[in-house]
């Protein structure tokens, strides 16, 4: 319940128009701060939803695969340059962002992460490492403007943001694979 409240407060805070406008004004913050925070708010709120509808999750997400796929689809969708632009210009798109990231990405992530095997987790990490590296390369190397609402320098910055996040994830996975983590649980 405490977690749900924290999540809700975070979610409402992010919904505040000035906060949203501020976070969206800088491309990298839009992508790597606002969106992850939205997912986090859903992740926190998920606890209550899980308790309210335990059967639904048990029935339809028994091995965690559908949930993690939904999470990935939503995340990849918001990584398309166009969607980020449209979130700024089209209201329906903005609305979809505020619904999909917490409830279609954050909630299923919470429910699925514990259910999927470590091989499954590693493949999720690897997929996103590759995707992030590719996106990073795309944004850094692109000579033209990919997002109409942001400056070129924002775009390059976002590219390096993707690359550093990919590196961080890679380090995390490497230490997971080579370290013995059985005792940290």
């Amino acid at each position: 319940m405490k977690q749900f409240l924290y999540g809700l407060v975070l979610y409402l805070f992010l919904l505040l128009p000035p906060v949203a406008a501020l976070l969206e004004s800088i491309m990298i913050i839009h992508m790597h701060m606002q969106m992850p925070l939205l997912i986090l708010s859903g992740f926190l709120m998920a606890r209550l939803i899980q308790l309210k509808f335990p059967d639904f999750f048990r029935k339809w997400n028994s091995n965690g695969v559908p949930g993690i796929m939904l999470f990935s689809i939503i995340l990849v969708y918001w990584m398309i340059p166009r969607t980020m632009d449209e979130a700024l210009t089209i209201e329906a798109s903005e609305l979809f962002k505020f619904i999909s990231l917490p409830f279609l990405a954050g909630v299923p992530l919470r429910d699925s992460w514990k259910k999927i095997s470590s091989a499954g987790k590693n493949s999720v990490f690897i997929i996103f490492i590759i995707l992030f590296s590719l996106m990073g390369w795309l944004y850094i190397a692109a000579d033209e403007q990919i997002c109409n609402n942001y400056l070129r320098v924002d775009q390059i910055t976002l590219g390096w943001g993707y690359v550093t996040m990919a590196v961080c994830m890679a380090i995390y996975v490497i230490q997971l694979i080579f370290g013995d983590h059985s005792e940290y649980k």
Binding site: G161, T164, M165, V167, C168, M169, I171, Y172, Q175
Partner: peptide, 14 residues
């Protein structure tokens, strides 16, 4: 979990 702390450190640096 030093691996995790290192990753967090790098994220803060980033």
């Amino acid at each position: 979990r030093w691996g995790l702390w290192v990753v967090l450190l790098l994220m803060v640096v980033a």
